[in-house]
């Protein structure tokens, strides 16, 4: 076995171990820590599969943002004394569940191995058309042009998720500010972190959205980094979350999807829903991506911040 493949097998095995530890361990905090580790390993796996765009998304969203969301959840549950793991089902029931889960895994694996090895796919079709898509990164071409309809729906999914989270607000706190007021010691490590990291993160975010049209990167990965910067500023006490009643913040959230949708609808009246004329496609995609990045960053940051907990 060559070293590269040996690495793959070792990485895959570690990822499965981390996943098992996350679901099966006794300590809930350890489970969350294992999940974050698991996300990092999966990001590495995507690099090995040559899917750098996905690796970026997994590193930023799968490991990063989801991890922080789960840590926040643990923290709140811990404070309310709800982190005790209740006794699981009987060992017979566990055995049955293990058997059923293993059968599904084996069935899926067998089906996959039995598929034709050459793998019919759309890579050739993408290669043929990428020149007309307006961008040279094939994944961005699929996301913002060939399958732009999915991406449009996805941006709306984010906005609706935020509305859904907000719908859990207690009436007396409607329009208030999410999360606790964060504080840190002046000049301490945390406060310094909060000053040093954001400019760097801002740079990385802007770079990722700029790089997205020709290299791996793009609106979602960039927006996640920007959302992280925002949350970091909040956590270091440098700024507070905005009140969800703020019209400006709500308009920021819907601006990206609304522009995307308006563009798509305009195209529909002219003949093609979401149709990008080849000669201006590059410019339009970049314009939509930039606005989307801002909207998605705000949405992600507020999704992690959660339900309002205090009034202004």
């Amino acid at each position: 076995m060559n070293p590269a493949l040996l690495f793959d097998v070792a990485l895959a095995a570690l990822a499965v171990v981390a996943a098992l530890s996350a679901v099966a361990g006794r300590d809930l905090f350890a489970s969350v820590a294992f999940y974050i580790v698991y996300g990092i390993l999966i990001a590495l796996a995507w690099m090995r599969l040559g899917a750098v765009d996905v690796a970026l998304a997994e590193a930023a969203i799968g490991a990063g943002l989801t991890g922080v969301l789960l840590i926040g959840a643990w923290s709140q549950l811990h404070r309310k004394g709800a982190t005790e793991t209740p006794p699981g089902p009987s060992s017979a029931a566990r055995l049955l569940a293990a058997g059923a889960s293993a059968s599904v895994a084996v069935l899926v694996a067998v089906i996959f191995v039995g598929l034709p090895a050459d793998g019919a796919g759309l890579a050739p079709a993408v290669r043929e058309n990428v020149a007309e898509s307006g961008v040279s990164n094939p994944v961005t071409a699929v996301l913002l042009n060939f399958r732009a309809y999915d991406t449009l729906m996805e941006t709306i999914v984010l906005a609706v998720a935020l509305a859904a989270v907000w719908s859990l607000t207690r009436d007396e706190l409607w329009g208030g500010i999410p999360g606790l007021r964060q504080h840190a010691r002046d000049g301490g490590v945390l406060a310094t972190f909060g000053r040093l990291l954001p400019p760097l993160g801002l740079l990385v975010g802007v770079y990722l959205v700029w790089a997205g049209s020709s290299m791996p990167g793009g609106a979602f990965q960039a927006a996640t980094v920007l959302a992280a910067v925002w949350l970091l500023l909040v956590m270091s006490g440098a700024m507070d979350e905005p009140a969800i009643g703020s019209t400006a913040i709500r308009l920021t959230i819907v601006a990206g999807p609304a522009l995307f949708l308006a563009y798509g609808t305009g195209g529909a009246f002219l003949g093609t829903f979401l149709g990008f004329p080849a000669d201006v496609a590059g410019m339009l995609i970049v314009a939509i991506e930039y606005v989307l990045t801002v909207s998605i960053a705000a949405t992600l940051a507020l999704l992690v911040a959660g339900v309002p907990r205090r009034q202004e």
Binding site: I156, A159, V160, A163, G245, T247, R250, L251, I253, V254, P257, A258, L261, A262, G264, T265, A268, F269, F273
Partner: peptide
Amino acid sequence: LPLLELTVVLPLAGLLLALPLG
């Protein structure tokens, strides 16, 4: 008229309008 597309577009546009309107 792009009727087919509008059946999807209109409610979605409505929600993007209703979200800031409260």
